[in-house]
């Protein structure tokens, strides 16, 4: 007998400066990457997501690389030469994360620096959302998608 396909929830966030908001969430039949084998420790820096059960046990966590982009990577005029970073003019945008939708998942948390420009400061809890709320959420509004060539009139 075929087993049920794995379920995941894709969360879409928008941010402006240090303000982060949930735009929507969507349950999808897909497999999430393995939880990181390195458990987060107090005082750590950077961004990561966590999923906890109702008792507070950590079920899943993964690092996130600069979801709130304050700068960008720039690549040399010479292909293959070194990489550098340049500050970003406007700190606003969107990002997605995936979490496993397992029966015991209760809380989603996003951790990171309170000030996105202080990546050396210990991460704090930036968001905490009940997974049941995510399951009931709607997908984020999507831009229109054109699926055919423009009609011509004769």
């Amino acid at each position: 007998m075929a087993s049920n396909p794995p379920q995941a929830i894709r969360l879409t966030f928008s941010y402006q400066g240090s303000q982060i908001g949930l735009l929507g969430a969507e349950t999808i039949a897909m497999t999430v990457p393995a939880s990181s084998p390195l458990a987060p420790q107090p005082g750590q820096t950077g961004y990561w997501l966590e999923v906890h059960d109702a008792a507070g046990r950590l079920l899943y966590h993964r690092p996130l690389h600069n979801p709130i982009a304050i700068d960008v990577e720039a690549f040399s005029q010479t292909p293959g030469a070194s990489i550098a970073r340049v500050p970003r003019a406007a700190s606003e945008g969107r990002f997605n994360v995936l979490i496993p939708d397992t029966g015991d998942a209760r809380w989603f948390t996003l951790r990171g620096p309170a000030d996105p420009t202080r990546s050396d400061e210990p991460a704090q809890e930036l968001l905490r959302i009940d997974v049941d709320t995510l399951r009931r959420s709607k997908p984020p509004p999507a831009p229109p998608i054109s699926t055919g060539p423009p009609r011509t009139t004769g």
Partner: peptide, 20 residues
């Protein structure tokens, strides 16, 4: 962003909407 010539970007929200 008028920063670096080699910085080639596109509308990531549209890209993700089409991909999803």
């Amino acid at each position: 962003g008028n920063a670096i010539r080699r910085l080639l970007t596109c509308d990531s929200a549209s890209v993700l909407a089409v991909a999803h």
